[in-house]
Design a protein around this nucleic acid. Structure first.
Length: 151
DNA sequence: GCCAACGTTGGC
DNA sequence: GCCAACGTTGGC
């Protein structure tokens, strides 16, 4: 079992959207490191759903991997903003996963709170300048966050 | 809205 | 292969 953190701008896709859908597609990732992390995910892995670029920045809830990486359909859609002319069906470049809603926190665990926690000093999320949108979270960090900021 | 940090592109 | 220029992310 591995743990992850996925960022999304709630204006585009929020944990409430996922809750409504029950199972949602995580597509549009256009960064190689983030993509490789998507590809490393296994069904049943747990992930933090993180809200970025919004009024309350932080971890909004939990989801789990429902379907492992497959070619991101949005790379083939010419009209869409995630279209990639270099990608072909035979040789796709980008990957998507499906995630299943697990839980929405009553209140998001904010980035400020996480940054203030010495236990999380070496978490990728809390590093200055870190903007990786799909990142691994260690088991101890994941459990620590749940235990400490239980909501 | 600003801007630091980072990733990507493309000229050489 | 280097690196400047540019575009994007994302916190503040």
């Amino acid at each position: 079992m591995h743990y992850w953190l996925l960022k999304s701008e709630p204006d585009a896709y929020s944990i409430d959207d996922l809750k409504r859908q029950e199972v949602g597609t995580w597509d549009g990732v256009r960064n190689y490191m983030a993509r490789n992390n998507l590809r490393a995910m296994k069904k049943g892995d747990l992930l933090f759903f993180y809200h970025s670029s919004t009024t309350v920045i932080g971890i909004a809830g939990i989801a789990e991997v429902e379907r492992e990486a497959y070619p991101d359909p949005s790379q083939f859609k010419k009209a869409g903003k995630y279209y990639d002319a270099k990608a072909t069906k035979a040789k796709p470049i980008w990957s998507a996963i499906d995630v299943r809603f697990k839980k929405k926190f009553k209140e998001a665990i904010t980035l400020a709170v996480l940054k203030n926690d010495p236990v999380l000093a070496d978490m990728i999320l809390t590093q200055k300048g870190s903007r990786l949108s799909v990142q691994p979270v260690t088991e101890s960090h994941f459990k620590h966050i749940l235990k400490t900021y239980k909501v």
